[in-house]
């Protein structure tokens, strides 16, 4: 097992270098000069420009700049933000809990609805519920996120006034945030209404971000269940006189979970990509919004470091998922 983990971590290295290179190149391909952006509307003298250029190393050839960046990264130094002057690490981990909280809620939402929906669709294969569900899932899957978000905002925030439109909590609440998770911190603060406010702020972003994973999970669960339901051990379970719920929900679902977990792992990347859009729409102060803002500000270190950290997260999640297989189906552990 340890060998396996180590060999997997070794395969991270080329990916890691690749991502570093891409993020480094990506931001430089965009038109716009970070120093000009920093100067703002007032502009700056040529002398000052040359001075700042030298300070940030932009006067060096590109390969030299990349080499300096890479050596910094390897030593754990992602540089400082051009705008706030604070280390990228610190900013990332200050904002990451907000994104994590949203992503976890979105994933739980997708699982809570997607798993049962997939199971019920498979059990009622070909009947009305199955067809209705699978068409809905297809729509959900192909829905543009921003359009879906706006629709929900218009209906639930605009017309019905049920949910707030932006932020993580009403401004009138203020409390320390030791964990960075608003749901936990608001509960810990003991202020009445704070938790409720946090939940209400979470609802729409969760739905928006969870819709695509929900569709994917429902479809994957259905097809995995259909395969498992034809297996011999399901016939055995029926021959034991077990209830349908037990057979489908325990004997079959446990086996169907393997492919489902794979798509969950794979959709972490999609989820983070979706988070960028969702956070921007709902002014959610997480790394998605932070990255978008930084791109507009041509804040090179933030964009580079942020992309790199996100990529590492995705890789770690996928490794974790691979190891989960063995826990769910011990037969896989042996290989």
């Amino acid at each position: 097992m340890l060998n396996y983990i180590l060999s997997r971590i070794l395969t991270f290295i080329p990916t890691f270098v690749g991502v570093t290179l891409i993020s480094f190149g990506f931001i430089r391909v965009l038109p716009g000069d970070p120093i000009i952006v920093m100067a703002g509307e007032r502009g700056m003298s040529d002398a000052r420009y040359a001075e700042l250029s030298a300070q940030y190393g932009f006067d060096q050839p590109l390969y030299k700049q990349f080499w300096d960046y890479l050596t910094g990264v390897v030593q754990g130094d992602l540089g400082n933000s051009f705008v706030t002057k604070r280390p990228v690490w610190d900013e990332f981990f200050a904002l990451f809990p907000a994104t994590l909280e949203l992503s976890i809620c979105a994933m739980l939402f997708a699982l809570a609805l997607g798993l049962p929906a997939g199971v019920i669709a498979a059990v009622n294969r070909g009947k009305f519920f199955d067809r209705a569900l699978m068409s809905t899932a297809l729509i959900g899957y192909s829905m543009p996120i921003f359009w879906w978000a706006l629709l929900l905002i218009i209906v639930f925030s605009g017309n019905l006034q049920w949910t707030p439109v932006s932020g993580r909590i009403d401004l009138l609440y203020y409390f320390p945030d030791p964990t960075g998770f608003m749901l936990i911190d608001s509960l810990a603060s003991g202020q009445s209404g704070a938790f409720k406010s946090a939940v209400r702020h979470l609802i729409l972003p969760t739905i928006v971000l969870g819709t695509i994973p929900l569709a994917v999970i429902a479809r994957q669960t259905r097809s995995a269940m259909l395969e498992v339901l034809g297996e011999d051990y399901i016939r055995t379970a029926r021959a034991k006189g077990l209830s349908t719920g037990r057979i489908n929900g325990i004997h079959a679902l446990r086996n169907a979970l393997i492919p489902v977990i794979t798509v969950i792992g794979l959709s972490v990347g999609t989820l983070l990509a979706g988070a960028i859009l969702t956070e921007t729409i709902f002014s959610w102060p997480g790394i998605g919004k932070w990255m978008v803002d930084s791109i507009f500000r041509r804040d090179y270190p933030v964009v580079q470091g942020g992309l790199l950290l996100i990529a590492v997260m995705v890789m770690v999640v996928n490794l974790t998922v691979d190891m989960l297989y063995g826990v769910i189906n011990p037969k896989i552990r042996k290989r």
């Binding site: 011999d232 051990y233 379970a237 004997h251 086996n255 189906n329």
Partner: peptide
Amino acid sequence: MSSLNPCF
């Protein structure tokens, strides 16, 4: 072999 559930 296939009549027993591999997960339990």
